[in-house]
Design a protein around this nucleic acid. Structure first.
Lengths: 232, 232
DNA sequence: GCAATCGTTCGGCGGCCGCCGAACGGAAAC
DNA sequence: GTTTCCGTTCGGCGGCCGCCGAACGATTGC
């Protein structure tokens, strides 16, 4: 039985603006050093240390010590999913009074980004839609790959079959996009597909953030593989 | 762009033990009066008022005033899902040192309960498993109803087709059960199926909580409809 | 060995917030 | 009308917690 105090202490981990900023930064899926997170959240290193202790102790983050650096990252895809769910709730809210500037300033982010370990933004949604229209993905009564979709991933997109064995993590999962308000492909297949895109330089990261850019090679690949012509 | 302060203030709503207890109580999907929630959480009525203001203002709860009573309930299925996701994270934690008493005291809850508006516990998992084994549900590469499953819901289980039009809410969704650590059927289909179970007296609520009991009629129905013989 | 850098621990300060009781308003029961 | 009950507002108290700076360890680089 879940006790209220357990729920409260879990929520308390994210109920502080500094810790929330750290977790959102870590949503890019990469490992950050303690100092980087401190600077990003604009607090003193000593303050960051305390926060990281709590987040690690609470199971949201894991650490990897390396020399005099302490790298931390999200404890797994389930944590990332939880954060995305929370973020989606926020963006859902009717008529949030935010200026235009914040929107335009993040146009690259809206165009395409990684959501922990899979593609999101307009790019992620476009790929998901194309897969749905070509019968690779079934969204009519849930969110699942078809047998054609499974074959496409390995034979056409070039994923390794052994990477797609469903274990604890579901193969396909819908992840609600908070800019597009649409679902996009997450889960194991989404992660491996994103890995392939990055490995083939179909998309490249912009700077150090989560935003990604579709390359010319990528445009061609999307056209060939999915019949997608006008992305972004 | 989701700002850290938005995430923090959303999480802060659940970061208090009293508010968390209220939300968990409301997970039964029904409307509670302010006084009932105050008593349940063991705080003064004035304290409860403040908490309810925050929860309603934050969009997690909605209120319905009726006479001198103020009824509140969860703002929707998405809130319930969020709470269940958080609860699942807690129960996931390795080796939580909890006594046997808490487990046995909640054996009815583990056997079967409602999870906001669908069935959970061993009963919910058993139904979901049976639907999977009989080809009504596809869990191999996601979580989706098959065409046979859709037909079964309306023709055999007796759901009204007009109740299963997918709108904003997905038809089928997996909801992780925090006692069984298994997925069970949620989403629109899960809700309507649960409604049918309750309406036909296949399951009845135990007392005023979330726990439910399978009736003799229910046992027979599960055997007839799904070939399920030994539930619970 | 010395300096620079990264992270940690510790003490103390300040503010937020959850709690209650008392008083009040409104609706229902009689 | 009177009483009772439910919920609210307000003021004040107490504790938790997030913040920093200073001092210290640890590691790397020179």
């Amino acid at each position: 039985m879940t006790s209220a105090s357990d729920l409260a202490s879990l929520a308390a981990l994210l109920a502080d603006e500094t810790r929330a900023a750290m977790c959102l930064a870590l949503l890019d899926g990469r490992a950050w050093t303690a100092g980087e997170l401190a600077a990003h959240a604009r607090v003193a290193p000593s303050t960051a240390t305390g926060h990281l202790h709590r987040l690690i102790g609470g199971g949201l983050l894991v650490e990897r010590r390396q020399g005099r650096h302490r790298y931390v990252q999200l404890a797994g895809a389930s944590v990332a999913q939880l954060l995305e769910d929370l973020a989606a709730r926020i963006e859902h809210r009717p008529a949030s009074p935010r200026g235009l500037r914040a929107v335009t300033a993040n146009s690259a982010m809206r165009r395409g980004r990684t959501c922990y370990d899979h593609l999101a933004g307009r790019l992620g949604v476009a790929v998901t839609d194309a897969m749905t229209h070509t019968g690779l993905l079934d969204q009519t009564s849930g969110f699942a790959l078809t047998t054609a979709g499974l074959a496409w991933l390995t034979d056409t997109a070039g994923l390794r079959p052994e990477d797609l064995r469903p274990g604890k993590r579901p193969l396909a999962r819908g992840c609600l996009d908070w800019t597009e308000r649409r679902q996009h492909l997450a889960g194991l297949a989404g992660a491996k597909l994103c890995e392939t895109f990055l490995g083939n330089d179909w998309v490249v990261r912009i700077g150090s953030g989560r935003a990604v850019r579709l390359t010319l090679n990528g445009k061609a690949a999307l056209r060939d593989l999915l019949g997608l012509s006008d992305v972004n």
